[in-house]
Write a protein that binds this DNA or RNA. Structure first.
Length: 283
DNA sequence: ACCTAAACCTGGGCGC
DNA sequence: TGCGCCCAGGTTTAGG
């Protein structure tokens, strides 16, 4: 599922493959995407790629920016100029691009192509001046990034101390901390031994510190395995991530606890989302 | 300030 | 075979 490690995997790969290229044009296939495209990007050069929470921001040479959020089922697939046929393997399935889920296509002047595929059409592309885009409701409301130095232990302890909501909801609240979604929230809480329904303010200083470390640990592990492909996440070369093979509790209902406490993983709902935890280890 | 539920979408899995 | 139903989750919005 696209959370911080998945999006960061894409950002890094894109940075290595499209930085410096010049955009020829963008073809928007899904009309839903067209509304948020406010500037022309033709003939602009890719200067740098940044990640804001679970979104990617592509900075162009003419002070315009492309913001992309792949939400649940989006894919960015890169076709290098050397690849003459359009046959491509996505998660092991050979197919011709564009396919029926291709919602937009960016063409580069050197012949390379970037496909934006999205089964459920939740994802978005926003194109505007960088200044306006960063004032947009999504970008301007993000809390510090879960893997950057701006998320200090003291900031983290503070938001925990001052929140009555469940600790899991807090971890997933992008306004407070950006980048954590359902999979990594579940696993981090398990590692830290904290019950997901605990009111955040009830955590001790020690528990908050342990949770902070657990978050760093699971996100780095996610990066190491190039993301989790529970739904249909793939990298820009169409390859799935591996984290789902190493997740601790997410999706493991009824499995024995990975810490061998003798209990089985339970599944409950918090804010409408599937939540997995070990009743033996998480208090 | 906090919660929940519904909406946005579609494919896949299930029961019948 | 196929229909209807539920489920998945990132984010926004509406309502309590």
């Amino acid at each position: 599922m696209p959370e911080l490690p998945e999006v960061e995997t894409i950002r890094k790969q894109l940075s290595q493959n499209i930085k410096g290229k010049i955009i020829k044009n963008i073809e928007v296939i899904d009309k839903k995407l067209a509304k948020s495209i406010k500037k022309s990007i033709n003939n602009s050069k890719i200067k740098r790629l940044e990640r804001y929470g679970k979104a990617i921001l592509i900075k162009l040479s003419n002070k315009n920016c492309i913001g992309i959020h792949i939400k649940l089922t989006g894919q960015l697939i890169f076709m290098p100029k050397s690849k003459k046929d359009k046959l491509f393997s996505i998660a092991g399935v050979k197919q011709i691009l564009p396919n029926k889920y291709t919602r937009a296509i960016i063409y580069f002047t050197d012949g390379a192509v970037l496909y934006f595929n999205d089964i459920r059409r939740f994802g978005w592309i926003k194109i505007d001046s960088c200044r306006k885009l960063q004032q947009d409701g999504f970008f301007s409301n993000l809390g510090p990034d879960a893997l950057k130095k701006t998320l200090t232990i003291s900031y983290f302890s503070n938001i925990i101390k001052s929140s009555k909501s469940s600790i899991k909801s807090l971890l997933m609240d992008q306004k407070k901390i950006s980048g954590i979604g359902n999979i990594y929230a579940n696993d981090a809480l398990f590692l830290a031994g904290v019950h997901p329904k605990r009111p955040a303010e009830s955590l001790s200083k020690q528990e908050a510190a342990k949770l902070y470390q657990a978050i760093q640990h699971v996100l780095k592990k996610g990066l190491k395995y190039k993301g989790a492909s529970e739904i249909n996440f793939v990298d820009i070369f169409g390859r799935p991530g591996e984290y789902q093979k190493h997740s601790l509790v997410y999706g493991k209902e009824n499995n024995p606890c990975p810490k061998h406490c003798g209990e089985r993983i339970k599944r409950i709902k918090i804010a409408g989302r599937g939540t997995f935890y070990c009743p033996g280890c998480q208090k």
